[in-house]
Amino acid sequence: MASDSIRISLAQAKELVELLEQGEQAQADALLGEIVKVQHDELFASVGRLTRDLHDSLQDFHVDPRLESLMEDELPDAKNRLNYVIQRTEDAANRTMDAVEASLPIAEQMHQQVSHIQPVWDRLMSRDLELNEFKQLCHDVDSFIRDSGQHAAHLQGLMTEVLMAQDYQDITGQVIRRVIELVQDVEQNLIELLKVFAKREDSEVQADKKKAKPDNIGAEGPIIDAEQRDDVVNGQDEVDDLLSSLGF
């Protein structure tokens, strides 16, 4: 069906006119049919080729066990993995904060004991203390030493708990890496699918890409590649600069 190939020759056209002038309608129709038949054959051959390509590609996709397992097992599995990451990170954050919340009152109590003892202690150091005050001070210091030992051991345990809670990073890191691999697989398969179905011009694809991003203030979540993008700020300083440029 190429437009540059000759569709009807001058001789054929003259013959057609002659036949019509002579009133030979049936013969004229037959001649016209012969002329367009060549083009029809080309079209049919082309459609046939496309159909066979499509059929083969679909057949390939159907028998590709990778795709089947992607759809049936791995995508639902990826959802579970990501939920698992949320759960693990939430647990770790709560574990850490539990330990911190338990530590703060201990520090506060030690601080209070010291502030209670210190003024009397200072007077002892400057030899300005009555005997009965000295006895009381001895008791206070004694209980402070005992309490401090216990508190130190308790704090040590809580700090270890904070340390151990950070193990989520290793586990979630591995899980996320596997999900990334899966996403790459899906992407590869989608590209193959596009190659089969998409016969559009590049410009059309470009236009669609532009259309796909109409909402620039829609929520996007954490930016994981801020250094590579120029539409996002990189840190609080840039936020402050931007806002002050707006008169904030």
Partner: peptide
């Protein structure tokens, strides 16, 4: 965690008093 410049401008225009990323 939203850190796009347009978002920060939009928040400022909507009358936000502070913006922390």
């Amino acid at each position: 965690a939203e850190a796009k410049r347009e978002q920060i401008v939009a928040a400022a225009q909507a009358g936000v008093n502070g913006y922390i990323v």
